[in-house]
Structures are given as C-alpha cells and as structure tokens.
C-alpha cells in the first residue's frame, strides 16, 4: 500500500475515530515523522546518531546499527538471513551491498539488461550513458585516445540533453 502523501510504501497505518467519523491514515516513514507519529520499529534520529557515534568510538561496524527507512529491516538481520526487506533497502544499505553483489556477480555492479517499459526513455538514456562511460574507461586504459575523444563527445551530448545520472 502506498503512503497517502507520496509514492513510497506506507509503514504506519492508523485508524482515527472522531465524532463517530472513521479516518484511516497510511503513511511512509518520512511523513509519519512529519505528523509526529511514533514508529515502534524506529528510533528517533538523535538516538540513532548517538548509537552511531558510540559504536564508532567502540570500533564496532556502524552498518550493524543501520535500519531501512522503508521497511524497518535492521542490517544485522540481513546479514543473518541474506534477504532484503523492500526496494528501499538497496539505497539504504548501498555501501554494504556493493561489495557483496560485485563479488557474487563476477565483478559486475551495473544492470545492462532489459528495463521496464513504464520506466520510459530516461532509464534507457542512463543505461546508454553508463555503457559509454565504461567504454570510455576501456579506451583510455588501452590508450585509444581518438576513440576516447569520440566517446567523450557522445557522453557530453547525452548529458547536456537531460538530467545527470542518479548514482
């Protein structure tokens, strides 16, 4: 179910009955915080920061204290079971996941396969930019400077005609 105020998944569900009128609220973590609704699985940000700092000073892995904003999954639970909780986990745990995925995928860390048709041309363009950037790196490494210049021009052209890469 989506949040009433945005497209993120709703993680707080509340039913309020006032004057005999029932009102349902479905909110994502961000909007629940804005509304001042306490979230059972989440800590206030100041506590989280304190824990982060404390764990750093004790030289523990700060990732162990991370939890996903979208579904509340603690990173330590992912480490135990190897299963993520929601699409947002890929963003929240990106630093921890990158080396894991790269190792499992023979060094690859970018999708080059098909894309959903609903995602439209912007993703398509981003993938082309990513491929061109990889080719440019290879051309420079192989000292093929003419080819590298061509690829750089193509990249500049693509980047000028739309938003930058997301990552």
């Amino acid at each position: 179910m989506k949040c009433d105020k945005c497209d993120k998944p709703a993680v707080v569900h509340e039913v309020v009955i006032r004057g005999g009128v029932k009102k349902e609220l479905h909110l994502c973590a961000d909007h629940a915080m804005q509304e001042g609704i306490a979230m059972p699985q989440q800590q206030p940000i100041d506590q989280l920061l304190t824990k982060f700092v404390t764990s750093k000073s004790n030289e523990k892995n700060p990732a162990e204290e991370l939890s996903c904003d979208g579904c509340g999954l603690p990173f330590r639970e992912f480490r135990k079971r190897g299963i993520l909780g929601c699409p947002d986990c890929y963003e929240v745990f990106v630093e921890q996941l990158e080396p894991l995925i790269s190792r499992a995928q023979n060094g690859a860390c970018h999708h080059t396969g098909s894309i959903p048709s609903q995602a439209g041309a912007s993703i398509d363009r981003q993938l082309i930019i990513r491929q061109l950037a990889d080719e440019l790196d290879s051309a420079v490494a192989a000292e093929q400077y003419e080819r590298a210049a061509e690829l750089r021009d193509q990249l500049d052209h693509l980047k000028l005609h739309g938003p930058e890469l997301e990552d």
Partner: peptide
C-alpha cells in the same frame, strides 16, 4: 526497478 541495479529482488544475488 533501479537504473543501477536493474530488477530488485529480495535476495541481492538475483538482482539485475
């Protein structure tokens, strides 16, 4: 779906 990771799956070894 994410432009970087592709189709998102519960187990990250299936992503892409």
């Amino acid at each position: 779906f994410s432009p970087r990771w592709g189709y998102l799956t519960a187990c990250p070894t299936n992503v892409g």
